[in-house]
Design a protein around this nucleic acid. Structure first.
Length: 475
RNA sequence: GGCCCCGUCGUCUAGUGGCCUAGGACGCCGCCCUCUCAAGGCGGAAGCGGCGGUUCGAACCCGCUCGGGGCUACCA
């Protein structure tokens, strides 16, 4: 095992969206690539916005994706004492100070500064208070926050593993809050302290955090000047057209994709290729294959648009690669959702086998199999398909011939090859058979007909054909 | 507004000065296969944001410009 230690550290303040998932995937891939350790840390420093549901969802999604966690989950909220101690250390060393400004005062002054064309950051009002004034403020019962004292000159710079040197003038970075009046730490502090304590060597995260890195690094250096991790900021995932990914573009939470019938291995495969690519030859890979090839220095610079069509294709490819028994297990809950838990296992397996080569999602497979599990009272025919049936040439003769055949023939797939009935009627399979698909499967598109009829069984087949015949006669 | 980051087919990408009349994949179009729909096979259209440099030579280097994104919180 190498000494590489990475962590996925989401905030439990909402659902796990695709960007979070991709960050998790990159971290996991890098850990597995290097033989390092993958740590899960929940950054719940914002007590008012963090929820246990979100926390649970994060763990569910990580598990579902198959990203095995080596250490954790660790909750930052259980380490607040450690964060406060670190903050006290910073105050003692003069790197941080007490600020007595109220939220209202801050807001008001920020507005005024903005109005006069100045940047709206903290104005440093409490930065250099003398001890007497500090004592006075405290005695007034004002809230106390701890702020980090940011350098006034020079530049902050670090070498990012994907972007190279990133640098910013310290004069543009205002003093920022470390500890809130209620004693809870803010992200910068908790993040710096925990990465230090957990001996994180590589910080792989979204580009939205690139500017905060200067602040985190400043805290780290004040606490321990000897250790600095490698930072790798990955491009953000965009919606269609390069705009910000949002609900308007459809599902953005990973669980929605799971529920829509996407395979976790397809999700990992697709996400891995968003912002990174070997893109030479085969793109369908297992997590292990991806891990063997992944490296953070190969991550792209530009944001990547999420393309559901490619995910869908990739999902189909993974469905085709999956051993049949595994696919049956994956499909089962989707079928059980409408037809209950007591499913005929053999029937399900046979149906999934027929669907495996033609489906793109698990939901798609469940839909294609539905006609097999539908009892006659719930079996319904798709309206567009019914119209096609009605318009079929010699439909009455065709139905009559198929009914007779199905009532009397041997019940084997070979004997159920209905094409033999078509010649006498001077019909072509391509034109005539979709009507039979409709009568049996409820749609003119679906699982191969003769195998399907075989699985439906003689009794239900004849019943459905007669039902179609009768409905036709009524019009 | 300020600061930072980014810019190759519609989309994901390969490409780090000559191998590029820019390669692959999804999607799209056409053909083949075919009991429907798919899957599969074959073929096709489609791109270096723009302008200036540097160089014998630029998708690759530099400048400007335009465009996109992020940050600018007692969110992370």
């Amino acid at each position: 095992m190498s000494d590489v230690r990475v962590r996925f550290s989401p905030a439990p303040t909402g659902f796990m969206h695709l960007g979070n998932a991709r960050t998790a995937v990159f971290n996991w891939l890098y850990a597995r690539h290097t033989g390092g350790t993958f740590v899960l840390r929940i950054e719940d420093t914002d007590v008012t916005r963090s929820t246990s549901e979100a926390e649970e969802q994060i763990q569910n999604v990580v598990r579902w994706l198959g990203l095995d966690v080596d250490e954790g989950p660790f909750l930052q909220s259980s380490r607040f004492d450690r964060h406060r101690a670190a903050a006290a250390e910073l105050v003692a060393a003069g790197n941080a100070y007490e600020c007595f400004c109220t939220k209202e005062e801050l807001d008001e002054r920020a507005r005024a500064m903005q109005a006069s064309g100045l940047p709206p950051g903290y104005d440093g009002a409490c930065r250099d208070l003398d001890p007497a004034t500090r004592e006075l403020r405290r005695s007034e019962g004002r809230p106390v926050t701890l702020r980090f004292r940011t350098p006034t000159e020079g530049r902050s710079s670090f070498v990012d593993a994907v972007r190279g040197e990133v640098s910013v003038a310290w004069s543009t970075v205002a003093d920022f809050v470390l500890i809130r009046p209620d004693g809870s730490p803010v992200f910068y502090l908790a993040n710096a302290v925990d990465d230090l304590d957990m001996r994180i060597t590589h910080v792989i995260r979204g580009e939205d955090l690139i500017d905060s890195t200067h602040r985190v690094l400043a805290i780290r250096r004040a606490l321990d000047p000897n250790r600095q991790p490698v930072y790798a900021h990955c491009p953000l995932i965009l919606g269609p057209g390069g705009a910000k990914l949002s609900k308007r573009h459809g599902a953005v939470s990973v669980e929605e994709y799971r529920d829509a019938g996407y395979l976790p291995q397809a999700m990992v495969n697709y996400l891995a290729f968003l912002g990174w690519g070997i893109a030479d030859g085969n793109e369908i890979m297992s997590g292990a294959e991806l891990a063997s090839r992944f490296d953070i220095v190969d991550v792209n610079h530009a944001g990547a648009a999420f393309d559901i069509q490619k995910l869908e294709w990739m999902n189909g490819e993974h469905i085709r690669m999956l051993p049949l028994d595994d696919l049956v297990v994956a499909v089962r809950p989707f079928v059980a959702k409408t037809f209950g838990e007591s499913l005929n296992a053999e029937l399900l397996r046979a149906a999934v086998e027929l669907a495996q080569s033609r489906a793109t999602t698990l939901v798609h497979i469940a839909e294609q199999c539905a006609f097999l599990f539908a009892t006659d009272d719930v079996f319904t025919i798709n309206e567009a398909s019914w119209e096609k049936l009605v318009a079929t040439d010699k439909i009455e003769d065709l139905l009559a011939a198929v009914i007779t055949h199905c009532e009397t023939c041997a019940w084997t797939i070979a004997d159920l090859d209905l094409r033999r009935l078509l010649d006498p009627l001077e019909l072509k399979p391509r034109k005539a058979l979709p009507a039979i698909y409709t009568a049996i499967e409820g749609s003119h598109t679906g699982l191969p007909l003769f195998e399907s009829i075989f699985l439906v069984g003689r009794e239900r087949t004849v019943a459905r054909l007669k039902a179609a015949r009768d409905r036709l006669a009524q019009r």
